[in-house]
Structure formats: C-alpha cells, structure tokens
Design a binder for these strands. Structure first.
Ligand SMILES: [Zn+2]
Ligand SMILES: [Zn+2]
Ligand SMILES: [Zn+2]
Ligand SMILES: [Zn+2]
Lengths: 156, 156
DNA sequence: GTGAGGATGTCATAACATATCAAGAAATGA
DNA sequence: TCATTTCTTGATATGTTATGACATCCTCAC
C-alpha cells in the first residue's frame, strides 16, 4: 500500500500486501479469519474509501448471501478490534487499515469530493492534543482524528 | 467558563458567561435566539457533558413541550452552525461550546468514566495532522479531534 | 463423544437523523 | 399600515445506523 493513497499506486499490490499481512497476523494470534470476515475486508479494500455497514450488506446480498445487519457489524467488529479496519466517526463508515496488526494511532484525511481516504499516523502523546491533555491532567486512551477537505487531485 | 472544565469552577458563572456571549453575538449578527434554541442551549450547559438529540427531546417533553425529533435537531443545527455548540462525533451527541461565536478549531477530551468533556483549541495547520496534510498535499477544511480517556478525578 | 467457546443465521427493535409540507411569526420594504 | 418575503415551528412519516436476543452449528480440548 502506498504511504499516501491519494497518489497513484499499484492498488492490486496494495490489496495483496494487506491480505497477506492480515492472514499472517491471524495465524500468529490464532484468530479465525473466516470467509465472511475475509470477504468484508476484501470489500473494504476495493478502494480507499469508507463504506457503511449497510453498503457492505448490499454487496454481500448481491453476492447471494442472505445477510442481516449483525452479519456486517460482527465482521466489522472483528476487523476493527484486531486493527484490520477503522471506523471513520465523521461518516459512520469503515475503512481498511493501511498497517494491519501494527499498533498505531491513526489520523485520517477525507476528501469531500472524491471520498478517498488516506491514513496517517500520529503519536498520541505528542502534538497539540497531547499537550492539551497534559495541561488538563487527562489520560488519553483512544483518539479520533479526522480531517475533511480536498485531496490533491480534487483541488484542481 | 474555566479554561479547563475538569477543574472545580463556578459553574453558574460559567453558564452565565456563555449565555451572555451568545445573546450578544445573536444581537450583533441578527440571529433569532428563540425560546426553543435558548432552552436547548441551557440544557446543554447544565453540565459539561454531551447529550444526544433524544436526551434533549426527553427533557423538553418533561417540560410539557410536545417535541418531535426535528425540534431538537433544528435547534442543534442552529447552535452548531453558529458556533454555540459542537457535535461530538464519537458519541453522536452535542456539547455547548466554551467560546461561543469565536472562530476556533476545537479538540475534545472525553472522560469515559464520568462523561465530562473539556474543549481545547488547536491550530488546524500546525501539529502532526497539519504536517501530514502538507505532506499529502491535502487541504484541510474541517477537523474532528476527540480524545477518549480518563479525566484527572477519575484517575484516582 | 461430550462439553465449552466461538461463529453464524435470523428476527426484532433501539438509537440516531432527515424529508416534506402546512401553518405561524418576524423582518423588510413599499 | 399592509403586503411580501423569509425564517421558524408543528406534525407526520420515513430513512439510516446499530444492537439485543436466541437458536444453531462448528471446532477444539478433554
Ligand atoms: Zn491502494
Ligand atoms: Zn490503521
Ligand atoms: Zn462549568
Ligand atoms: Zn467551541
């Protein structure tokens, strides 16, 4: 996966790398990477966009799977809990992770025009938020950092 | 309002200052600070917590107002659009702004234990997110920055 | 083989948010 | 003042996102 998915890149390699990393991670950690979970991740990886749970359900149904909401939400829970996908709070939607399995604190840039999303990484204790937390005596456990705007292509 | 609402502070002054500032801002900008809008802001100001639209509806109803969802959402839209309240995306809920009317880029610290929320301010172009955006050629228009964790009191 | 834990299928419902249209109130400008 | 326009509210309905609950099935350990 390119470091910045706004740039042109070999996307099939991008998909492949993630699937390989996830398979390896599941093997090591004895996680069941079942067909539904795999298929949902594949769907998320189709492009660098966030999909709602019901978008995913529609796709599953179009493939002959009689899918009820919990089917999508359970697969997404699995992917999110294990660091293979992230929820974009601003959109109530889900995106595949660029660095599956690795511990990281993501920040997202969301293009409002083409809807593409790039994941960057932060250090939670650094920067303005870290400083504000120290000043307030607040202990950060999770962060939601999402920027909305225009990607390079859509600025033209 | 205290710079950090996790600290003990004179909350009635805190409420008063915000209401005064909002009234002044509405007078200057010819905004209609109607009874419903005022009441919803008062409800949000009761404590430094986020309330869902339906929480607000319940309160309005308990006060004899026959309130349907659009009543709450319209008032909240008004408050958010004019910078008197913010939506907390992580919670699908709304909180009163600490600096009503002023242009600012908020960041929130949300205590998962007592649910209190403090608003800090960021410079959108600075810090880790600003740097990531410059590297990617991304133009930031809005940001969502929310930290979840434990406030000073709840760490004991 | 039996029991325990995890995964899936299915139905139902909760929680969050908006579309639409009618009616009323307030600002605007003759 | 009166008409016009714009904003606000009332009310019904519906759309969208997410979870609860329970039955069934599968796998693995014992
Ligand atoms: Zn790619
Ligand atoms: Zn990630
Ligand atoms: Zn206060
Ligand atoms: Zn604010």
């Amino acid at each position: 996966m390119a470091t910045n998915s706004f740039e042109d890149h070999d996307h099939s390699k991008c998909v492949n790398d993630v699937m390989t990393a996830v398979e390896a991670h599941c093997a090591i950690h004895k996680l069941q990477f079942t067909p539904i979970r795999r298929r949902v991740l594949e769907i998320l990886l189709q492009d660098h966009r966030a999909l709602g749970a019901y978008d995913i359900l529609d796709i599953l149904r179009s493939e002959g799977h009689s899918a009820q909401p919990p089917v999508a939400y359970r697969a997404l829970d699995f992917l999110v809990k294990n660091g293979f996908a992230h929820k974009i709070e601003r959109l109530n939607a889900f995106v595949a992770c660029s660095h599956p399995g690795e511990e990281h604190t993501p920040a997202f840039m969301i293009c409002r025009s083409c809807e593409s999303i790039t994941e960057a990484h932060r250090e939670p204790e650094q920067g303005q938020l870290g400083e504000a937390a120290r000043n307030a005596g607040f202990r950060i456990e999770r962060t939601v950092v999402e920027a909305e705007g225009l990607c390079p292509k859509c600025q033209d």
